[in-house]
Design a binder for these strands. Sequence first.
RNA 1: GGAAGAUUCGCCUAGUGGUCUAUGGCGCCGCCUUGGAAAGGCGGUUUGGGGGCAACUCCAUCGUGGGUUCAAAUCCCACAUCUUCCGCCA
Length: 415
Amino acid sequence: MIDIQLVRDNPERIKQKVAEKNMKVDIDLLLKLDVEWRALQQEVDELRRKRNELSSKLKSGKPDQNLIDEGKQLKIELADREGLLDKSKAEFDNLLFRVPNPHSDDVPVGNEDSSVEIKRYGDCNKTGATDHLDFAVARGWVDFERGAKVAGTKFYFLKGELALLENALLQYGLSVMADEGFTFMTVPHLVNARTATGAGFSPRSDKESNEYFVEDEDLSLIATAEMPITGYHTDEILDEKDLPLLYAGYSACYRKEAGTYGKHTRGLFRVHQFNKLEMYAFCLPENSLELHERILGIEEKIWQEIDIPYHIINIASGDLGSPAAKKYDIEYWSSVDNAFRELTSCSNCTDFQARNVNIRVKRADGTLQLVHTLNGTAISMARALVAIIEHYQNADGSLNVPKVLQKYMGGKETI
RNA sequence: GGAAGAUUCGCCUAGUGGUCUAUGGCGCCGCCUUGGAAAGGCGGUUUGGGGGCAACUCCAUCGUGGGUUCAAAUCCCACAUCUUCCGCCA
């Protein structure tokens, strides 16, 4: 969540930022509730002070019936005020939680089409490739029909060499992560509500949610390893000398993707379950801007080494999502769609997630500060396979193996 | 899923209704001592919120949430987590 102090100090700026993010939160109501709950808090504190005073009078000597009666009266009054306070504070908290992280000033303002291209790599004009699904089905590499039989639409089996190629991508990704100083981790695929909402994902009550929830349990299936890793250091005070903490989490990602039919949904591009190697960083506040660029640089290195043409876009405010202050996407050039398609995404969430899950760092001067958190896709397997099939296919139905993956495919140059 | 035990201020730990504004140790910080250090001595050291320029002060915080009571770390209830054992099982 956002620091309420920012809202108190400059409500007009926050209103504008919320509007620019295409979100609706009643900031005036938030400020009204802020005043209200704090006034109630003061009343409650004062009543509690009286109670403490009274009970210390009763500590010694024999019980005084007058004081006991006074205490009983105080207790009734306190219960009444505490009830009002709880209600007011809960209302305030709910509203505060809905305020998004204000985007950085260098984020383009507007909707999706206002996102700004900041770089291109490779040949982004190529056309005429065979669709990845047709190509892969012809080779018996992917089976959506049987996926539907065992789970439902948009579930699939990967088979044979394509499944092995996914494994090769993971091995390659892990070697890059190791070179870059990231600690590899596997993660729980289910997280509790505090962790899910802490990372900025929908609460259970949200019917539009992209997450799957487990019935009768306080658990949701993760949509990304970002969720469990956000919660990894919950309620901890980190040591300044240990930062930045760099983690690479590998997990399956589960997404409902309801209502997205028709938007590049063919084949492996948008599915209910896929595997992803995700980078995640906890760092000092003053270092997050630089680290964001570094994470983007690692993503670029991966796609340059695999050699897929792409461009980088600075995502516009209206398409940012709640927790991100700034986000870069890498979109590869689809030689089937003749358009750019999202491949990776990296966000600077500043202190927004850290405030939710209470992760702080003890600074050299002894003060405590919230850390900043960042996340970025290293390799999202299903989409990576789509891009590789589009760019490495041969007319005879065979597929060249990208050079950096060959050593993880038993040295094969073609499959 | 069942049983027993546990959960206290970074870590370990004392604490069975008012003397807890929570004990002691370790660690950490400051000072004394020293040529310098170690040892030793003295003092400080949970976190969050409110008020105040400040000194300071008020409230909360002993896993979480309820309850009993004038008063709860302490008594009662529920839940969570951990440990051990049983069951099941890759």
